[in-house]
Amino acid sequence: MKQKELFLQADAALRSVIDRITPDQLDRPAPAEWSRTPNPTVRDILAAHARDEAWVPDVLHGRTIDDAGDSYNGDLLGDDPVAAYDRLNDLATAAVNEDLDPDAIVHLSYGDFPVQDYLEHTSTYRAFQAWSIARQLGWDYSLPAPLVEILWEVIGPQIDGFRAMGVFPPAIEAPADADSETLLLCRVGYWAPMG
């Protein structure tokens, strides 16, 4: 299942970025459109990703929001936010590495979908957040080439449809010398030059 490989690669890319975040960077502001929290910080974004990771095993095992109750409310990060995220990421990775039925129905906050669609949705979010967080923190970062390749393969044909649903902002004109990663980031509306 391509979506499984996509998830594992995108999740690993996001973790590689999160693992570079230092304690002093957690209080830096994050773009308002990344969060429902007023005046979000990088820590708020990390908290949202931690919650997203925490849900993966439950979602893949068919649990609903009602089943989980308030399990994932409150602070999941504690005194060592990056280590807390990594523990949740390990659990999510183990769950995705199980023998999954791509057509099994899982229950999301926005509806019921096959497992393969869930993995596709969450992979897209993770991959582009990895790049966006790194850029927000001023790092020279590139998505791994195999991840770019599988994003083009799985997400590429659906970009316009996702954009119509409000997932992606308008496309950006790519520079003349754009590589595959830059072309992808421009197509989904996220690319910006280092400034």
Rank of each mutant, 00 (worst) to 15 (best):
L151W: 03
V42M: 02
W131S: 03
D66I: 12
A30S: 09
I21N: 04
D90R: 13
T37D: 06
G195P: 11
D177A: 11
Y110E: 08
L147V: 01
G74C: 01
I105K: 15
L143K: 04
C186P: 09
R126W: 04
W139E: 10
R163V: 07
E173R: 13
Q9P: 07
Y72S: 03
S16D: 15
A164G: 11
P31T: 08
L8F: 10
P29C: 00
M1R: 14
H107W: 11
L185N: 03
H121S: 05
L91H: 09
A32K: 04
D66S: 11
I65T: 12
E120C: 14
D79I: 13
A174K: 02
A30W: 03
P38I: 00
A174F: 05
A95R: 06
H107P: 04
S123Q: 00
L88C: 04
L77E: 03
L151Q: 00
E173P: 09
I105V: 15
L137I: 10
D66Y: 11
E173L: 10
E173F: 11
I159S: 01
A192E: 14
A104H: 12
L137P: 00
R187S: 07
A94C: 07
L151G: 03
D24R: 10
M1Q: 14
P57E: 07
V148C: 00
N39D: 14
D79Y: 11
P38C: 06
E53P: 02
D86M: 08
G78Q: 09
A145P: 02
R126E: 06
P193C: 07
D11F: 03
F113P: 03
R28L: 14
S123W: 00
P114K: 08
G166D: 08
D179T: 04
P157I: 05
G189A: 06
N39H: 12
A13F: 04
I133Y: 03
F162K: 05
H61A: 15
G189F: 01
I150H: 04
D101C: 06
W55G: 05
P193D: 05
I45Y: 00
D112C: 07
I105L: 15
A192Q: 15
S109W: 07
A164L: 12
W191D: 04
V42D: 02
D103E: 14
P146G: 04
A47C: 06
D160P: 00
L91K: 11
H49S: 06
P29V: 03
G138Q: 00
P157K: 08
S123G: 08
A164V: 10
L137V: 07
E98S: 14
P40H: 02
R63A: 13
P175D: 08
I65K: 10
Q158K: 14
V96R: 03
D27R: 07
L137W: 06
I18Q: 00
T64M: 08
G161P: 00
S16H: 12
L26V: 05
R36T: 05
R15V: 05
Y72C: 01
